[in-house]
Design a protein around this nucleic acid. Structure first.
Length: 679
DNA sequence: CTACCTCGAGCTCA
DNA sequence: CTCGAGGTAG
């Protein structure tokens, strides 16, 4: 490290500022003021100075864009405001319905205007700037929790590391899309092919793949772009009144916003903009999958509020899915865990909607009949909702003379047992139960899965192998596996076999909830399993539960109750449960063994408003661990309401029903108390 | 459903 | 180097 003086500091700062400015001109405004060679010269100079005076380097230095050493993994981050998805409108009518709903909720306000913008096909990210410096970038994840991809995002040149402002907000969270232009994608693939690497299949996957790199130096080489579309939180005076003003403000801060944004005076203007954009789709420099339409007035947005998973003030007008024709090569009949027989079309591979489709579910016999499928038919396929492959229809007039109609089998293709099709159900089922190898395999896969017994290393391929070779015939057999049985199998020499046995051993220690879920009772998912494990003290109680006891549980209806009773009425399944316990599968005891351990047993808690100091999901699981059920709505059964900031109707209702209420502070104190007294 | 990244471990060939 | 498992994303 060389000694530093004021002159050096000043000229270094100038250099940093110049680079930021030119970067902005080039990447955000598309209006370069100096040549690439000159820019590179400045950058080289910067790196030289930083090498000599490393103490100068700050988080926002343009040199940070070259990417740093690989991360061991991405860390998890909680979103302060959840990242929701948008409701979709697949037709002009659906869009008008949206407009009608908005008007109904905003009765009295006449002029509702909208802001339309292209919906980029990329990866959604959240950016947090603190005092104008990019502090954190995260993926959407499940909406509540995402991954910290800051080091990768910093390498994106169209995204400022430092906001352009003399007085930047102390904190601002901007959301937007990271994507790749078609040109960038083409060029990248050329160079990938040149270096012998596999090219990406579409720009979206290229963008997503680039962001998933642990080594941000790789990401730095990828032509990623960023475009902002919303602001979630900011601390600043003079807050904007409209979505449009907000975006312009973000633009002034140096973030790129979409130049094709359109202000619409009414919903018809939105629809014609969508139509226009759809016709121009191919000539755009980036891929889009629709148009996002938002109520422009922020006050109105706030008033409209949210549905469970999406805002009521915005919608994605999706373009009709791209269609392509393919040939029906065959229909496979897959047998699921419960014996459900699902027909799956095997198609000649066809590139549509950015991926190659070669299989598509046909759902059930009715669907086959609706399509009137014959083997070898030419069919139209698309990606419904832009994800799920779907056979749309048969192309008539192209059918082979002697082609055979697709028949739903009468017998299971795996075990030859009769397939039963109850008139009351759409789904046909193989009657083989556990005599059917396909069902056995699916049962085992489900049993081993992450949210069930969590036996890591026991994947699809291995289960197939174990069952096919006769090593195991049931979930119980898993616990009798030994090294000598595994070693002869493919790819299971030495280490893998030991790892698997360890994982199986580890799975013996579980929870009642996971065990119940693992059993694979029809209609009993992870949620229902939790209800059962909370309401009953032991598996024996659940096995013996009467129908009325089951129905008394909020969330369990007559169908579920019958499935549960049917399941445990079968002596074979009872034997399996006993055997598993004999092999050492166990879980901590709950209710009956000590009310102390579940102090909130039987209580129903509800949250409302914004809770700031603790993540709501976390609070929920703490309460559940204490034995409470957490519900979404207040009723007479509610034991207590936790009201955060800006609580609304739920608080009112709770007061009306005389239900005790905690504010955030009281709630935290309560949690603290209960945890200290209990241990 | 498809595509992508990462990891550990096995297989292959030198 | 290749494979399978496990994770992510839309």
């Amino acid at each position: 490290m060389t000694k530093i003086n004021d002159g050096i500091v000043t000229s270094y700062r100038q250099l940093v500022s110049d680079l930021h400015t030119h970067n902005h001109y080039y990447h955000v405004l598309d209006d370069p003021r100096i040549s690439d060679v000159e820019y590179d010269g400045l950058m080289r100079k910067l790196i030289l100075v930083e090498k000599q005076y490393p103490q100068l380097v700050k988080k926002d230095s343009p040199s940070q864009r070259i990417g740093g050493a690989p991360l061991p993994q991405f860390s998890q981050v909680q979103h302060a405001v959840p990242m929701l998805s948008l409701d979709n409108a697949f037709s002009a009518k659906a869009l008008r319905d949206f407009d009608r709903r908005v008007h109904e909720r905003l009765k009295g306000s006449e002029n509702i205007t909208y802001l339309c913008e292209p919906k980029l096909d990329g990866v959604a990210v959240s950016l947090i700037y603190e005092d104008g410096i990019l502090a954190r970038a995260a993926t959407r994840g499940d909406g509540a929790t995402g991954e910290d991809i800051t080091s990768n995002v910093k390498t994106i040149k169209s995204l400022p590391l430092k906001l352009i402002s003399d007085l930047p907000p102390r904190l601002i969270e901007v959301r937007g899309e990271i994507y790749m232009t078609r040109q960038g994608f083409e060029q990248l693939n050329v160079s990938m092919k040149k270096s012998g690497e596999k090219p990406f299949v579409n720009p979206r996957n290229a963008a997503a793949g680039s962001l998933r790199q642990l080594d941000s130096r790789v990401t730095a080489q990828r032509p990623l772009s960023f475009c902002a579309y919303s602001v979630e939180q900011y601390s600043d005076s003079g807050s904007p009144d409209t979505q449009w003003e907000m975006l312009r403000y973000v633009g002034r801060l140096g973030l790129r916003i979409n130049p094709d944004i359109f202000f619409a005076a009414n919903i018809d203007a939105c629809e014609s903009y969508c139509h226009d954009l759809f016709t121009r789709r191919a000539s755009l420099s980036y891929d889009i999958d629709g148009v996002v339409i938002k109520v422009n007035d922020l006050e109105k947005q706030k008033f409209l509020g949210f549905l469970s998973r999406s805002p009521r003030w915005a919608i994605a007008r999706k373009f009709p899915a791209e269609e392509a024709s393919s040939q029906l090569l065959a229909v496979d009949f897959q047998v699921g865990r419960t014996g459900a027989v699902t027909p799956v079309a095997r198609l000649s591979p066809v590139f549509v909607g950015g991926v190659t489709i070669s299989r598509a579910s046909l759902h059930n016999a009715d669907e086959i009949a609706r399509l009137g499928l014959h083997l070898g038919d030419t069919v139209v396929v698309r990606r419904a909702g832009d994800v799920i492959p779907q056979v749309v229809r048969v192309v008539h007039g192209r059918r082979q003379e002697n082609s055979t109609v697709v028949l739903f089998p009468k017998f299971c293709p795996v075990c030859q047992s009769p397939i039963l099709h109850l008139p009351s159900e759409v789904i046909a089922r193989c009657s083989g139960s556990l005599r059917c190898a396909a069902q056995v395999k699916q049962v085992i896969k489900h049993f081993a899965s992450r949210s069930a017994m969590n036996i890591s290393g026991l994947g699809d391929r291995l289960v197939d192998q174990l069952v096919d070779t006769g090593c195991i015939t049931s979930i119980v057999d898993l616990y009798d596996l030994s090294l000598s049985m595994l070693t002869p199998l493919e790819r299971l020499a030495g280490k893998s076999a030991r790892n698997l046995l360890n994982a199986i051993e580890k799975s013996k220690k579980t929870t009642l909830q996971k065990f119940l879920y693992a059993l694979g009772i029809r209609e009993v998912g992870i949620n229902c399993a939790r209800l059962l494990s909370q309401q009953f003290a032991s598996i024996e109680e659940i096995m013996a539960a009467r129908e009325d006891e089951l129905l008394a549980i909020d969330g369990i209806g007559p169908v579920l109750a019958e499935h549960i009773q049917m399941f445990f009425a079968n002596p074979k399944t009872c034997k399996v449960i006993q055997d598993l316990q004999k092999k050492g599968v166990h879980w901590p005891l709950t209710a009956a063994d000590g009310v102390r351990e579940i102090p909130l047993y039987g209580q129903v808690w509800v949250f409302t408003g914004r809770i700031e100091s603790i993540n709501r999901e976390e609070a929920k699981s703490v309460l559940q661990a204490l034995g409470a059920r957490v519900s979404d709505s207040v009723s007479s059964k509610t034991s207590r309401l936790v009201a955060g900031k800006a609580a609304g109707s739920k608080l009112k209702k709770a007061k009306a029903l005389d239900i005790p209420v905690f504010d955030e502070k009281q709630f935290l104190q309560f949690l603290e108390d209960i945890q200290t007294t209990d241990i």
